Structure formats: structure tokens, C-alpha cells
Amino acid sequence: MKITKILPVVLIGILLSCSSGERVIMQDGTVYSVKSGSFYNKGKDVTEQLSSKEKQDINTALNNRLEAERIAEEKKEKLNKEQDKIEKSIEKAEKKQEALEESQEKLEEKLEAKEDAREDLLKAKEKLQNKKEKYNKLKEKGKLSPLDEEKWKKRFEGMEEEINEYNTIFKNLK
């Protein structure tokens, strides 16, 4: 990109340094060099041999070529500016794309964490339910002492606290 900005400056410098001697190719294929108002052909001064019309034609051809080069340079600069704008737009779009991808990734992670928390909550509830069924069976059969019943109640309290923690985690992920 730096080259595209430096190139026009270099070309203008070259044109200015060469302005003392411009080459002109005429339609008949003759090549003239124009230096400080003098005309040269094959290194020889032919200014005196040329008619004023030929001199005018050479100058016109030279001016047309210089004007065409100037217009081409302006178009090139305009295209470079447009290309810079397009590149900046592409960079912005890429940054937005990256931000969207990061956002999507975070959402997917959050969804996965929510699903894990839901599964943990369901497992804890199922475990509590199974333990309560086992407790009730043992109680109906009369196989629980008062000390055993205290142990079971402490287990239930611990499991209910665990369920409450999973509930809190699950709710916080919404």
C-alpha cells in the first residue's frame, strides 16, 4: 500500500527531471527529442530543418501525451483512494465478523454451561428421590433406629442444600 502512495511521487519526480528532454514519436515513426525548445532526431539538432507546422505537430503530440499521462495519473490516484476505502471496509467487516464469532462462541459456552447445570440439578433431584424411597422402605420395615433416622435427615438436608446450589447456578445462567 505504501508503494502505491510513493509511486505517483516518484513518477512526478521522473517527469520533472526529464522535462528538459522529452521524447516524441510521430505517426510516421520518427522519434524526436525536445529539449529547451530545440528538436533532435537521432541525437542531431534538426530544429532549423523543421517547418513551423512540423514543430507545432511535434509540440501538439508532446502536449497530448503529457496530458494523457496526467489524466492517467489522476485516474490511478483516484483508483488507489477507492482501493484504500475498500480495504478499510473489508478490515471493518473482518473485525465485525471476529466479534460476532467471539459472541457466538460465548453464547455456545453459556448454553453448554446451562445444560450442564440443568443435568446436575436433575441428577441431584433424582438422587434425593431415590434416597427418600430407600428411607421410606427401611422405615416401613422398621429397620431404622432413631440414630439412623437422624443420619438420614442430615443426608436429606445436605442433598437439599446441593439442589438449592444447583438451582441458584442454573437460574444465574439464564
Rank of each mutant, 00 (worst) to 15 (best):
E101V: 05
K85R: 05
E149I: 01
E105R: 13
F170M: 06
E87Y: 10
V10Q: 12
S19H: 14
Q104L: 14
S103Q: 13
E112F: 09
V46I: 09
N41D: 04
K75I: 01
S52A: 11
L50P: 02
G158L: 14
T60M: 09
N130F: 13
F170P: 01
Y32L: 04
E91I: 06
S145T: 12
S17M: 15
V46R: 00
K143F: 11
K141H: 03
Q97M: 08
Q83T: 09
K131Y: 10
E161I: 08
N130Y: 10
N164G: 00
V31Y: 04
R70H: 15
K123N: 07
N164D: 03
E157S: 14
Y135W: 08
L128S: 03
L100I: 10
E162F: 06
E157A: 15
G158Y: 11
D45Q: 07
V9Y: 13
L111A: 12
K42A: 13
K131S: 08
M1T: 04
E126V: 04
L138R: 04
A72D: 14
S103L: 12
S19Y: 15
K127N: 06
K44Q: 12
D148P: 03
E87I: 12
R23W: 08
I14M: 05
E149W: 01
K2V: 11
I3W: 10
A117H: 00
G37Y: 05
K88A: 05
S17G: 15
G13Q: 09
F39C: 05
I58D: 06
N172E: 15
L16H: 08
S19R: 14
E162W: 02
L100H: 04
N64H: 03
E69I: 11
V9L: 15
K92S: 02
C18D: 10
Q129F: 04
Y166E: 11
